[in-house]
């Protein structure tokens, strides 16, 4: 009898779990849905309220976009170069740093790790003003490098990768590759990177999304039109105060998020599978 009661409460629990998960999933999807639907509606239609079904103004919204000197292809390319470069720099060099921290026994190892933890605490704003002044003095405006290179030092990514290595890396693999006569860089690139792929992919999503959506640093540093990223272009659209074309704004926003969708779903199987992070201290 007790058993059946347990079963009952178990299935009630399951119902609650599924309801909550489905609700949360809906709340996640709805904004995207509204955005995509509104991208196909005219401004007056949008002003009259929400709708569930798409309308027929996609093309006219697209034409308004192009008319407003919105160049989605250029914007996409610029955003892609910046976010792609940032992501590659962040994950590769963080993996390298994390591997250096875990695989080798060097004198300053522990102090360096503590140092990285401290660096993690520096809020971006603490250096923002100095950073902009510095870049202007350096003449590095309208240049993608100041947006990409700083990613090489990403303390949070290093931390994540280090925890991952602590949980996954076995001494045997390292030793084995050394016995085979592989150089350290070779074994890092050929053996360690594949092992770290789940952690790299997870962090790649985080970094890519953050970089793609970053508005303010590019806004301050990139002033030439042919260097604009997609978020800057959308902000420009909203800035045309005389005529607020909501339909084309939503279309612009949708275009901004589409590449992220592709990138995210390509790597999402790593999110599904999950990665194991070592939690216990050495």
């Amino acid at each position: 009898m007790e058993l059946s009661q347990n079963k009952k409460s178990f299935s009630i629990n399951m119902v609650i779990i599924y309801i909550l998960c489905i609700l949360l999933a809906l709340v996640s999807i709805v904004p995207f849905y509204i955005m995509f639907i509104n991208a196909t509606r005219s401004t007056p239609e949008i002003q009259s309220g929400l709708a569930l079904l798409p309308s027929t103004h996609l093309l006219s919204n697209w034409n308004v976009l192009l008319d407003k000197s919105f160049n989605p292809f250029k914007g996409f390319l610029n955003s892609f170069i910046i976010s792609g470069g940032t992501t590659l720099c962040a994950v590769y060099f963080s993996a390298l740093t994390a591997y250096g921290l875990v695989a080798y026994n060097w004198k300053l190892r522990q102090p360096f790790f503590t140092f990285i933890l401290c660096v993690m605490m520096i809020p971006a704003q603490a250096s923002a003003i100095g950073f902009y002044k510095f870049m202007y003095q350096f003449g590095w405006t309208n240049n993608f490098l100041p947006l990409i290179l700083p990613a090489i030092a990403s303390p949070t990514v290093v931390f994540f990768m280090r925890q991952y290595l602590l949980a996954t890396l076995s001494t045997e693999i390292v030793e084995a590759s050394r016995i085979d006569g592989a150089g350290e860089f070779y074994s890092f690139n050929k053996i360690m990177m594949p092992i770290m792929m789940p952690a790299v992919a997870t962090q790649a999503i985080f970094v890519f999304v953050a970089s793609w959506n970053n508005l303010f640093t590019p806004l301050i540093l990139l002033t030439q039109r042919d260097k604009y990223t997609l978020p800057i272009m959308v902000s420009l659209l909203r800035g045309d105060i005389y005529r607020t074309e909501f339909g084309s704004i939503y279309l612009g926003l949708s275009l901004t998020v589409l590449p992220l969708f592709v990138f995210y779903f390509l790597l999402s199987r790593y999110i599904i599978a999950g990665v194991a992070l070592g939690g216990v201290k050495e």
Binding site: Y104, N105, W106, R109, I122, L149, P150
Partner: peptide, 29 residues
């Protein structure tokens, strides 16, 4: 022990970039 130097080498890019793009602007600020 002989591999220790790789620890330094692998962490070097992080340190250099950190000094230029983070440390210096923070001190400047």
């Amino acid at each position: 022990v002989s591999y220790a130097k790789y620890g330094y080498i692998f962490c070097l890019p992080f340190v250099i970039i950190f000094l230029i793009f983070s440390m210096y602007p923070t001190l400047y600020t």
